[in-house]
């Protein structure tokens, strides 16, 4: 009946006023979404993005950070739309990881 993201009016503890500066990684997620949804491309809509985030399920709110939810949702949409495939994503992730590990050594 009531979906997990629809939380207006529920009980919760005090508002934690702590803030963090957005990291470069988080801004990259934001940038990807802006580029895909922007009027030059309109490859996705913000409505689709919201739907995909909601469909990550109740656990996502407790297990994932804000931008982790964002990138999970946007990646799912890109795969659904056939813009990228699971296989090429897996390959690219290996490559990115290898490069980072190399850079750290």
């Amino acid at each position: 009946m009531r979906r997990h993201h629809d939380m207006g009016g529920l009980d919760a503890g005090p508002v934690d006023p702590a803030e963090h500066d957005y990291t470069p990684w988080e801004k990259r997620v934001d940038a990807i979404v802006r580029l895909l949804a922007g009027k030059e491309r309109r490859l996705i809509t913000l409505d689709e993005h919201r739907r995909a985030m909601e469909d990550l399920g109740p656990g996502a709110y407790d297990e994932l950070s804000y931008y982790e939810r964002w990138i999970s949702a946007i990646t799912n949409i890109l795969i659904e739309k056939g813009v990228i495939s699971v296989e090429e994503l897996g390959g690219k992730m290996e490559a990115v990881k290898a490069r980072w590990q190399e850079a750290r050594e």
Binding site: D21, T23, P24, W25, R28, V29, I32, L35, L36, L64, E68, I71, S72, I74, T75, L78, V83, I84, E88, L89, K92, M93, A95, V96, K97, W100
Partner: peptide, 21 residues
Amino acid sequence: DIEDGPLTDLMIMTDAVAELL
């Protein structure tokens, strides 16, 4: 980036998605 903290799978996925696009 150093301030990103430990490298997570979803951080890797972010850059992989960006590069693919």
